[in-house]
Design a protein around this nucleic acid. Structure first.
Lengths: 231, 231
DNA sequence: CCCCAAAAAAAGACATGATTGATTGTCTTT
DNA sequence: AAAGACAATCAATCATGTCTTTTTTTGGGG
């Protein structure tokens, strides 16, 4: 969907027509919009960003292209809405996981790893890569990524409040988790990593995170040394 | 460059016309081909895969599109040659680094990290992502990625032969290094990681790798515990 | 030493197919 | 009847691959 060469977006249609009168039979609209967003995600996964075109999305959604243009002014509007949808999907899944707080590192790792397995992340990464060279996409994606990182850290803080005593360790653990897990997910799909390497890396990551936590004595790692020079 | 929907490649023109008579003034051909490959890499970096089109590459190379099609039967042939070029670039840089063997972990990490900073890796990743949904690209890229991983491990084996006594630790260290470093490089460009997190992660990775190596007693990590359950 | 034909390199022109945004028309709901 | 959901069609743009033409290089004869 190489549509960034069109003239500047004229007027951005609000994602949801601002609450006209609640629950009119045009809930259908929201439903159709949802179908279009899902179709976009599916296309990103199946065909990649470069081959995600408006006709293909419409076909995937079982709609005419005209209908699609009725709900989204142009292709970029569709992508923008898809990005927001993906972002909210990530946050929802995260909040769901937060309702079951075991105060176990395994949860943080396992939960995020499961998320990264879902197609939503593939679609997200396709868009993130495209955003590197598309200012319009970057403008939309950037703030959401910051927000996600913040929420990710916030949840960890909530689960392990004593961790803030060692902010350097905390932030290292956070970026380590995100980088390793996301890196694995990406490399798995792009062929840079063997499936067999995943399990050991997950286990190792868990151990490392525990080692970075304020010492809650564990039978296995009672004498884990302080991690090297840190700020 | 969404050109995979064309009919099957007819006849693959050999990369170098098979050594007709050595060194005729048509070294110019090789030179021009090189300019085209460089231009392709630059386009991938500047415009991304989705917007890397044949006219743009030709313009970037300062050539006419006709001239370009004279050297590469079609767009896919150009991409294929670019992939091979990128692959050989990676291997060359690696071999260069191997000529200075300090037997220091820092070298392995620092060397690969420097490589990942160069535009070649961005282009490579653009192609790797595109290959996920493009069978033709995947067919070309797959074997090269395997080869790179093998050579990467081979160099580590050569630097630290005693490491093979613990193959599980060795492979974990290898995949950890690649995943973390590549993950950081990607996340930096796609906005998923803050620049400030890079240095601590590099240091931490080095420490972790040392901990996975056969015990060459280090003043800092003399009592590093064996890493948790492995195989 | 010069000139010329053949081959290669480079440029240009063309036809096709695809994508995009816009416009117009139809049908349903309210 | 008015508005919204949906469908169909249109013109313009662009990318791709092919074909044709021009320019340059090169390898010999005269």
């Amino acid at each position: 969907m190489a549509l960034s060469r069109t003239r500047a977006a004229r007027q951005i249609r609000p994602a949801r027509p601002p609450e006209k009168s609640i629950t009119l039979q045009a809930t259908k609209a929201a439903q159709t919009r949802g179908r279009l967003l899902d179709a976009t995600i599916r296309c990103l996964v199946k065909f990649g960003y470069a081959n995600t075109t408006t006709p293909r999305v419409a076909e995937e959604a079982g709609l005419s292209r005209g209908a699609m243009m009725h709900h989204f002014e142009n292709g970029m509007a569709l992508l923008q809405a898809t990005i927001v949808e993906l972002h909210e999907k990530r946050l929802r899944a995260f909040r769901r996981a937060a309702e079951n707080p075991n105060r176990e590192v395994t949860d943080l790792v396992e939960t995020y790893w499961k998320q990264l397995q879902k197609p939503a992340f593939i679609a997200f990464h396709e868009l993130a890569v495209a955003a590197r060279t598309d200012a319009e996409l970057a403008r939309i994606l950037g703030p959401l990524q910051d927000e996600f990182r913040a929420k990710f850290n916030a949840q960890a803080e909530q689960l392990f409040p004593e961790w803030l005593e060692q902010p350097a360790h905390f932030h290292l653990a956070m970026s380590l988790s995100q980088t390793i897990l996301e890196g694995m997910a990406i490399s798995l799909h792009t062929g840079g990593l063997e499936q067999a390497s995943v399990e050991p890396m997950l286990r190792h990551l868990e151990v490392q995170i525990r080692a970075l936590m304020p010492q809650r004595p564990s039978p296995l790692l009672a004498e884990t040394p302080r991690i090297a020079p840190l700020g």
